[in-house]
Structure formats: structure tokens, C-alpha cells
Design a protein around this nucleic acid. Structure first.
Length: 554
RNA sequence: GCGCCGGUAGUGUAGUGGUUAUCACUAUGGCUUGCCAAGCCAUAAACUCGGGUUCAAAUCCCGGCCGGCGCACCA
């Protein structure tokens, strides 16, 4: 047998044990769509819950939910319609692809002749309602939902920066040729946060909590010059200007903490900055968290972009909606100003039907623009006599100004994280000559938290085990009962799906109401009283206790 | 989207024109054992789809779909 590489072994396990499989298999499947089976869906759910712990609970960024189907206006404003619908043409000689340009006859790279033009649009397009009057697109990111709702969210947060909004949801991109399992899908789950900040405030009040965290950074400059990544603390990276400011540094550190919490290997994570030519149309700076995979090398799993005020400006313009936050000055600014007061009734009598336009033009003028005593209305220059216009000197206090917030956006590709986590957790080892496959998932991430196993399926051990299974379920643990085959076989079955603890009921259980807990990674066992089981499991899963300390080691 | 290669039970596979489609693992039921994939018996389970050639196709030819690799794409 030809040795399978790690990708193949992980996918084989994932399919066989119910984590992942291609969608629509009975109809021949379609590239870019994968189903999450019972264990995959559970694993993904725990990852999403951990993400919510980080962003919704710990950071206080409330979560919202907006439609996956969006109206055309949203993506016209965001630039996606323009930036996603391009006619492309490829050079027959060198294969280079270009946007179609009528002036283009030969390949600008090599002078070869060009092939036929083809359209590509990464957004799925459809129509809403009967009659196809309204064009709809499936969203390629969740972010626009947060921008479109900005005025509502701002009010919810009582008109004060900074604040953040989170959303987890399905997004859709009609990739030309998706490959590589769940690493590139046409429908996938993204978890995004839009953090709205005052553009003048780049600091983070809790920066000290993360400042000493070590990061592996691969800045844009290094990719061009030395091709080395570097180990550096968050604090040093910000001070040296490698990371632009504290806010960015804080959130990069947070991403790393999250990835480690769910169980990715620390030595297989780095942050790579986008180079100028690969940055998205909406962003001014972007870092990707990349995970090292066996077959595909460094793979993007999280992106953190500085979107600036691009999106809010765009939606403000297209929707004619104010998207600013009133930010007060420390001291109100007092200033004197001369304002123009048109004599409305006199102008009306003199200019009749042109009066309205003249008055409007006067009101939008500053006094210094009206020195000549003439007013420009369309192409016409109209002289105005002094009786038609008055000036008034006013004193006004300005308390603050409307600021368009800037946006920092961490964006997680959840499905990619699921695959990478499976790969990083996957281990094969040899125990007494037998191969043992084990998923070393953290206990709080593993889909099944405990296996309840009667040593024998008779002598009343099975009945006792069923009772224990039932009580664990009532306490909120996702457990599996298994009495099929030898105890060793059952341990191995659960090792393979990452179940962190196996609870075994033996003859001694019937005598003294104790049972054993076996730890997946060490294969050690402790004996604990039944009444302590629930509390012990809770501590072990939360990582609040050391295995050997919560029972008697056997 | 282009090019090359591939597609057989849940998994890994044998099978170059006529086989009851091979073997192993897994799974299910039973016997046995009784704390790390032991053994025995039984059972279940497959030729990617469509068309063509042929008396006869898993096998040869064409096309679709899916997968792998390379190019392009991945805002």
C-alpha cells in the first residue's frame, strides 16, 4: 500500500468517523461543498462557542445576525459588484490573466496572443421575489451586514466609540475551482468582528495584558527582502512599528490566544502581513494568521484587516445616510462667524421662479465667497443688490464633530480552522506493537466529552453504566455509551475521535460505588467515587484540575 | 477554466474482455476473554454516472461528475 500523506489520513478518518464528508455524495458530489457529520458539527459548534467566549463575552462585542441574501445596492456600495465582475482574458503563450481592455491586443508580459474573454463573478447572483425586479446576491462576507446596520448599532451602544459587533454566519463565494477539502469552499462559515474606533485612538486600554505574548511575525517587508519570519513580543513589534499600533497588536495577540485555546500547535502558527499587491480593495493593512499544514504549507485561517473608513463612507454615500459618530471636544470651541441671511421675500418678488435656486445657493455659500456681490446659479451669474442680502455676525460654540469611525476586522474561516485543528491534533503512535490513532483535542473542544464503558456487558455492569450515562447527560455532558467489543478496542475507538475521558464501570463499582476514569493522552487511570464524577468531569474538561489530583491513581 | 493522472463495500485494496468481483480492516449479532484494537462462528456491504464498441465491459472508446497534481484564480 502506498503511504498516505497526513491530509489523506486525516480526511480518511474524518469521513469514516463522521466528522466531514463531501456533500451530495449520492448524486456525485459538487466541488466546494462539504457536510459536517455528527462529530464535525459538534466540533465546529464548540469552536464557535469558544470564539463567542472570546469576542462576545470577554471583549463585549455583541453578536448580531443579518441575512445571507443581500440586495444589490449593498454590494454596489461596498464595491463588490465592481470588483467581482470582471471579464478576464488569458495569454495563450504565458498563461498570464488580465482584465479585458479593448486597447489590449497582445499580452503585455510576453507579447503572445490572447484567448477568448470569459466572465467571472465570485458572488452568487439571483433574483428576489416574482418578476426578477430585485437582484440579490449571496454575501461573500458577513461584514456588510454590520456596516449596513451601523446607525442602529451605534444607537444601541449609546452613540459612543469604540464598540464592536460580531457575527457568525454562512457566506458564499463561487470559486472557479475549489479544492483541498474544507480549505476552500463555495459555502462556508465565517466569524467576523467589526471594531469601530475613533481614527485618532490607536491605543488599547488592556494592551498590558498581552504585551509580553510572543508572536511569530512575517511582515511584508521581510517577505521581499530576507524571507525570514521573526519571533517578537507584541510590545516590541508595536514599538518598532512592525505592527502599526496597539489596537492591531492587541487583536493579533487575541487571535493567537484563541487558536492556542482550541488546540492548534503553537509551532505551526504565524502571522503574515499582506504585501501591497495582494491587499483587498477595502483594506489599508492586513495580517493573516496562517497555520502550517502538512500538504499545503502555510494556510490562511484568520485575517485581520484595517478597513479604515472605506465601508462606512461608501454606504453613507450610496444610501444618503449619515454614518458618523459625534465626538465631543474636551473644551468646546468658541468662534465668531459671519452668516449670510438672504432677504427671502425681496428675492422672491424680484426673481420669481428662479428665487428658490438663488436662496439655496446663498445658503450654501461662505461669506468670503460672496465678495463680488454676484451669485452663480448653474451656468448663470446673477448680480444681487445689497437690499437682497444681509449679514449677521454670530458667536457659536462647537462641542464636537462627526467622525467616521475606522474599522479593525478580525475574520475567522471556521471551516479551515476545523480542518487544521484535526490535522494538528492527529497523531499516530505505536503502543506495544499496535498502532494507536489519537486526536489530541483539548477536552473542552472534543465533540464527545466522555465515553461510558461497562467492563462487561453483563453481571449488571451494563445497567449500572446506563444509569451513569444518563446522569452525566442530565448534568450536561455529551457522552457516548459503548459496550461492543473488548475494553481495549473501545478505548481505541474513542482515542480516534478525541474523547478525552473514558469512564469504566467494573465489578468494584457494584461493591463500593467507585469507577475509573481513563485519560486519553496519558492512558492513565484514576478511581473516583460516583458522586464526585460530575464535579470531577467538569473540572477536567475546563482544565481546572490536574488529572492525577482528582482521584486515586491506579 | 486549461493540461496530465486517477475513480471497485464504511476504509484500504486484488482483479487487462467471459470470475459467484479478491483480501484485510471496520461494522452488526453470538461464543469466549475480562482494563488498552486477542481468538472463534455468523451476517451485512462495492465496480462514479451516461453513451458507444462487442455475443459478452469493472476491464476497450467517448463524454459528464468527482478527486489529486501543475498553471490560472482565491478581492
Amino acid at each position: 500500500m502506498i503511504a498516505m500523506d497526513k491530509y489523506e489520513r486525516v480526511i480518511e478518518l474524518a469521513k469514516r468517523r463522521g466528522f466531514l464528508w463531501p456533500s451530495f455524495e449520492i448524486y456525485g458530489s459538487t466541488a466546494g461543498f462539504w457536510d459536517f457529520g455528527p462529530l464535525g458539527a459538534a466540533l465546529k459548534r464548540r469552536i464557535k462557542e469558544t470564539w463567542r467566549d472570546f469576542y462576545v463575552i470577554r471583549e463585549g462585542f455583541y453578536e448580531i445576525e443579518t441575512p445571507a441574501m443581500n440586495i444589490e445596492e449593498v454590494f454596489v456600495a461596498s464595491g463588490h459588484v465592481e470588483n467581482f465582475t470582471d471579464l478576464m482574458v488569458e495569454c495563450k503563450k504565458c498563461g498570464e490573466a488580465f482584465k479585458v481592455d479593448l486597447a489590449l491586443e497582445k499580452c503585455p508580459e510576453c507579447g503572445g496572443s490572447l484567448g477568448d474573454a470569459y466572465a467571472f463573478n465570485l458572488m452568487f447572483k439571483t433574483s428576489i421575489g416574482p418578476g426578477s425586479k430585485r437582484i440579490g446576491y449571496l454575501r461573500p462576507e458577513t461584514a456588510q451586514g454590520m456596516f449596513v446596520d451601523f446607525h442602529r448599532i451605534l444607537r444601541f451602544y449609546r452613540d459612543k466609540l469604540p464598540f464592536g459587533v460580531a457575527q457568525i454566519g454562512k457566506v458564499y463565494r463561487n470559486e472557479i475551482s475549489p479544492r483541498q477539502g474544507t480549505l476552500r469552499l463555495r459555502e462556508f462559515t465565517i466569524a467576523e468582528v467589526e471594531i469601530f474606533i475613533d481614527p485618532r485612538m490607536n491605543e488599547h486600554p488592556r494592551f498590558d495584558e498581552v504585551k509580553d505574548i510572543m508572536l511569530r511575525l512575517y511582515p511584508a517587508k521581510e517577505q521581499v527582502i530576507n524571507k525570514f519570519d521573526l519571533e517578537i513580543s507584541v510590545k516590541d513589534a508595536v514599538e518598532k512599528g512592525i505592527i502599526k499600533h496597539q489596537l492591531m497588536g492587541y487583536h493579533i495577540a487575541l487571535i493567537q490566544q484563541f487558536l492556542l485555546k482550541i488546540g492548534l500547535s503553537p509551532e505551526k502558527i504565524r502571522f503574515r502581513q499582506h504585501k501591497k499587491d495582494e491587499i483587498a480593495h477595502y483594506a489599508s493593512d492586513c495580517w493573516d494568521a496562517e497555520a502550517l499544514t502538512d500538504r499545503f504549507g502555510w494556510t490562511e485561517i484568520v485575517g485581520i484587516a484595517n478597513r479604515g473608513d472605506y465601508d462606512l463612507k461608501a454606504h453613507a454615500k450610496h444610501s444618503q445616510t449619515e454614518m458618523t459618530v459625534f465626538t465631543p471636544y474636551e473644551q468646546p470651541i468658541v468662534r465668531e462667524r459671519i452668516i449670510i441671511k438672504p432677504n427671502v421675500s425681496a428675492i422672491g418678488r424680484k426673481f420669481k421662479d428662479r428665487a428658490a435656486k438663488i436662496i439655496e445657493a446663498l445658503r450654501t455659500l461662505r461669506p468670503d465667497q460672496f465678495k463680488e456681490g454676484v451669485i452663480q446659479v448653474g451656468a448663470e451669474t446673477i448680480p444681487l443688490t445689497k437690499d437682497l442680502v444681509e449679514y449677521e455676525r454670530v458667536q457659536e460654540e462647537i462641542y464636537g464633530e462627526g467622525v467616521i469611525p475606522h474599522v479593525i476586522e478580525p475574520s475567522y474561516g471556521i471551516d479551515r480552522i476545523v480542518y487544521v485543528l484535526l490535522e494538528h491534533s492527529f497523531e499516530e503512535e505505536t503502543i506495544e506493537g499496535e498502532k494507536r490513532v489519537v486526536l489530541r483535542l483539548p477536552p473542552n473542544i472534543a465533540p464527545v466529552q466522555g465515553a461510558v464503558l461497562p467492563l462487561l456487558s453483563r453481571d449488571g455492569l451494563d445497567k449500572r453504566a446506563r444509569e451513569i450515562e444518563c446522569s452525566l447527560r442530565k448534568s450536561g455532558f455529551l457522552v457516548d455509551y459503548d459496550e461492543s467489543g473488548t475494553i481495549g478496542r473501545r478505548y481505541r475507538r474513542h482515542d480516534e475521535i478525541g474523547t478525552p475521558f473514558a469512564i469504566t464501570i467494573d465489578h468494584q463499582t457494584l461493591e463500593d460505588d467507585t469507577l475509573t476514569i481513563r485519560e486519553r493522552d496519558s492512558m492513565k487511570q484514576i478511581r473516583v467515587p460516583i458522586e464526585a464524577l460530575s464535579g470531577v468531569m467538569k473540572k477536567l474538561i475546563a482544565g481546572d484540575a490536574i488529572f492525577e489530583n482528582v482521584g486515586t491513581l491506579i
